[in-house]
Design a protein around this nucleic acid. Structure first.
Length: 303
DNA sequence: CGCTTTTGACCCGCGC
DNA sequence: GCGCGGGTCAAAAGCG
């Protein structure tokens, strides 16, 4: 059900995300507290989650039972555990028969293939956010390089693929626009940043490494933008919590889709040390077929 | 000149 | 096996 946006009923009601978050939808899908999602990846040592631990879980439902092989078994570092699957691919070590012609091309292709086959595609958990925005690529504090673009079936809008430009950081994100509501941009993060945000001049107040060990680090990097003046400005301009959707902390004139805030289970957390904080709060659910974690929610703004 | 974007081709998984 | 759709690569072009 990757094609979230292709769902014709997706935006038909007041809550565009209902189709995603409706916990009664399918047996293999279940509500999942955001902090639980994060906690599943051992973020608990992070200051932010120290805080979180003082708050009752969003969803107290049955212990999170994630069976999606990729969703939450992710290693703390990209190369650790899930490599086990690579052994299966070793058998693909096909003999390299290079014809004289097109030798170079073949070579590169073979290399490419070898590269792909040796390391079976391992899916990091993915976090999808929907944001109402006029711009496709929302600024999130990290530097991204576009490496691909594909037309999306049943959609006039292409899907763009970005990779974090930082070396050894394998975080990717996909950006696509909802064709049912072109004002909505869906950004899907995959992987975890292994570095602080390059656009964070001086991370402080104990959350500086927030995004270093977090799968949705790119998302949470947002909460650190408070030190930037433009952030304040925009922050103040926008009503409600719209200025601070996890994906848009204020550079692009975008705002979170009201649908995110529609449902009553939004989590409001107090942010401890007081001023000019904006805390993403959200809850999500895991789509086990895709490994996606669909997020909804907004931010709680405490000034 | 270095970095980013564009874009066509390729690979892979999956359903039929 | 084939076709389709999603995802990725890498050369070329663009840009500052």
């Amino acid at each position: 059900m990757e094609d979230v946006l292709g769902n014709s009923s997706f935006l038909a009601n007041n809550s565009p995300l209902e189709s995603i978050f409706d916990s009664s939808r399918e047996g293999d899908k279940f509500p999942l507290g955001f902090m639980e999602l994060l906690g599943a990846q051992d973020f608990t040592s992070h200051p932010l989650f120290d805080i979180a631990q003082h708050v009752p879980p969003l969803v107290t439902e049955p212990p999170m039972k994630i069976e999606s092989p990729d969703a939450f078994n992710l290693p703390a570092t990209p190369n650790s555990s899930s490599i086990s699957s690579a052994s299966n691919e070793a058998a693909n070590d096909e003999p390299v028969k290079v014809e004289d012609q097109e030798e170079d091309q073949q070579k590169t292709k073979k290399q490419l293939k070898a590269k792909k086959t040796n390391q079976k595609r391992q899916r990091e958990p993915r976090f999808a956010f929907m944001t109402k925005s006029e711009v496709d690529h929302l600024e999130d504090g990290y530097r991204w390089r576009k490496y691909g673009q594909k037309a999306v079936k049943n959609s006039p809008f292409p899907r763009s693929y970005y990779r974090c430009t930082s070396t050894s950081c394998n975080v990717k994100k996909r950006v696509e626009r909802s064709f049912t509501d072109p004002s909505i941009v869906v950004t899907t993060y995959e992987g975890q940043h292994t570095h602080p945000s390059p656009l964070m001049p001086r991370p402080s107040l104990g959350v500086s490494h927030l995004n270093s060990g977090i799968s949705a680090g790119a998302v949470f990097g947002m909460s650190m933008q408070r030190d930037q003046s433009h952030f304040y400005h925009h922050h103040q301009q926008l009503p409600f919590s719209s200025a601070l959707s996890p994906l848009n902390f204020g550079r692009n004139g975008s705002s979170i889709n009201a649908g995110f805030l529609h449902e009553g289970q939004s989590l409001l957390r107090p942010w401890p040390s007081s001023r000019h904080y904006s805390i993403p709060y959200a809850e999500g659910r895991v789509d086990q077929s895709t490994g996606y974690v669909y997020m909804k929610g907004g931010v709680d703004e405490i000034i």
